[in-house]
Amino acid sequence: MLKIKRHIVIPVFVPHKGCPFDCIYCNQKTISGQSGETSEAEIRKTIEEHLNTVGDAFVEIGFYGGSFTGISQEEQKWYLEIGCSYIKAGRVKQLRLSTRPDYINTGILDFLSAYQVRTIELGAQSLDEQVLNNSNRGHNIDAVVQASRLIKDRGFSLGIQTMLGLPGDTRQKALETAEKVVKIAPEIVRIYPTLVIRDTFLEKLYLAGKYTPLGLEEAVDISAELLEMYEQNNINVVRIGLQPTESISREGEVIAGPFHPAFRQLVQSRLMRNRLEQFFREKNLSDLKEVVIQCKSKNISNIIGQKRENLQKLMTDFNISSIKVIVNDNINEFNVKY
Rank of each mutant, 00 (worst) to 15 (best):
I4N: 05
I10T: 14
F13N: 02
F13A: 04
P15K: 07
F21I: 07
K29H: 13
I31W: 14
S32R: 10
E40W: 05
H50Q: 06
H50M: 05
G65L: 02
G65Q: 01
S72A: 05
Y79R: 05
E81C: 11
E81R: 15
C84W: 03
S85L: 07
Y86E: 06
R91Q: 15
Q94G: 04
R96G: 02
L97K: 08
P101D: 10
D102F: 09
L112K: 12
I120R: 00
I120V: 15
L127P: 01
E129H: 09
Q130G: 09
N140G: 14
N140I: 12
I141K: 15
V145W: 04
R149D: 08
R149W: 05
K152S: 12
K152D: 10
L158C: 09
G159R: 03
D169R: 07
R171W: 10
V189R: 00
T200Q: 00
L202A: 02
E203A: 05
K204P: 00
L207R: 08
L207S: 02
A208G: 06
T212W: 00
T212V: 02
L214C: 07
V220Q: 03
S223M: 03
A224Q: 12
L226H: 11
L226W: 09
N234T: 11
P244F: 10
T245D: 07
T245P: 04
I255S: 00
P258C: 12
H260E: 01
P261S: 13
F263R: 06
Q265H: 06
V267R: 00
N274T: 11
L288I: 10
K289I: 11
V292L: 13
S301Y: 02
K307N: 07
R308P: 02
L311M: 05
Q312K: 05
K313W: 04
V325N: 04
N328R: 08
D329Y: 02
D329H: 01
D329T: 07
V336H: 03
Y338R: 03
